[in-house]
């Protein structure tokens, strides 16, 4: 059902955990639907220096969160805003069609985190 990349990231997510005093937080999803994603970013000179996630969700949701973090890290905010669900799916090799919403959730969460940062600034 899942690609090796999905399983690998699910098993050992590199970016999991909470961030202390992040510059921006993106919270999307709803536990009722079985997915809740929090993305934390640290920004320096318009560049995402660090990113972390906390996710309540299935294998695909956790793997998508982790793939997103890797895509976002080191990018300028302008570049990061262009990260879409399809980039997450590519990074993961693939996702089953029924799990596509997990990648959409990931892209949305990052957008929300950047929005939060820009609002606070």
């Amino acid at each position: 059902m899942y690609t090796n990349e999905v399983i690998k990231r699910f098993k050992k997510p590199k970016f999991m955990g909470e961030m202390r005093n992040p510059d921006g937080i993106g919270k999307v999803g709803n536990p009722t639907c079985g997915d809740l994603m929090h993305i934390f970013i640290r920004v320096e000179d318009e560049v995402i220096k660090d990113v972390k996630f906390q996710t309540f969700g299935c294998v695909a949701a956790i793997a998508s969160s982790d793939a997103l973090c890797e895509l976002a890290k080191g990018k300028t905010l302008k570049e990061a805003k262009k990260i879409k669900d399809k980039h997450i799916v590519e990074k993961l090799g693939d996702l089953p069609p029924i799990k596509h919403h997990c990648s959409i959730l990931g892209a949305d969460a990052l957008k929300e985190a950047i929005k939060d940062y820009e609002k606070k600034r």
Partner: peptide
């Protein structure tokens, strides 16, 4: 599903009422 998958990797087969 996450718990199920981790258990599976440890050789334990269970099932879940999760939608996923």
């Amino acid at each position: 599903e996450g718990l199920l998958m981790h258990l599976d990797m440890k050789g334990i087969s269970v099932s879940t009422g999760s939608a996923c």
